[in-house]
Design a protein around this nucleic acid. Sequence first.
DNA 1: CTTGCATTTAGATATTTTCCTACTTAGGAA
DNA 2: TTCCTAAGTAGGAAAATATCTAAATGCAAG
Lengths: 105, 105
Amino acid sequence: MEKAFKALASNPRRRILNHLAGGPMTVGEIAAQFDMAMPSISKHISVLHDAGLLHRQKRGQEVIYSIAADNLANSLYSFLTPFCPEAREIAAERKLSSEDSTDGD
Amino acid sequence: MEKAFKALASNPRRRILNHLAGGPMTVGEIAAQFDMAMPSISKHISVLHDAGLLHRQKRGQEVIYSIAADNLANSLYSFLTPFCPEAREIAAERKLSSEDSTDGD
DNA sequence: CTTGCATTTAGATATTTTCCTACTTAGGAA
DNA sequence: TTCCTAAGTAGGAAAATATCTAAATGCAAG
């Protein structure tokens, strides 16, 4: 969860997520939306991926990233749980419906 | 929202929020939970407050902070909206009920 | 094998964040 | 006033982050 929040604490990284909300993309397609050198984008993407917020898939020499919506949602819901009753309910439901134990932190 | 995510990207600050989940506290009470100098805690608190995540109330020479749960939840829900249908619904509901009951803070 | 393209890694530098000590502000009481 | 305590500010050192250019890696085609 530490990693997820650190990953989300950056404007370019949140923008990357927003672009990916439109569907999976290659690194190049993502980078095309930014006025930033490719390696910087690549680094941001890897921070997001490392936080479990992106899925990665290779196609030839391209790498396609897509949002790991479940991890994103679960991280935020479980963080909200102590503060917010509705988040507690939702977090519980999500946990039930997907029994794939993913991250702990 | 930028501020909220930056504020949440720090372990000590998330710990402060978790302590405050137990109820309002003075700066001193919060600081007592940490092995960190007072000014550092004070700074963390002010980052959280500046992000709209804490309410502030003075009582004599003490300052009492409490969680601004609504802002916390709204920030995260509205961020999640593009990625997650249930967040969209919840965000919409929250927005409605906050227009209804103008509870000031 | 060589060339070309997509992505990542390495290394350098500038900015930001974190945390400390020392000092200031402000309220309450003697 | 003077003293004490709670909280915040100022300034600076150390660590972490962001970003760049240059070089390396991986893959596919000729």
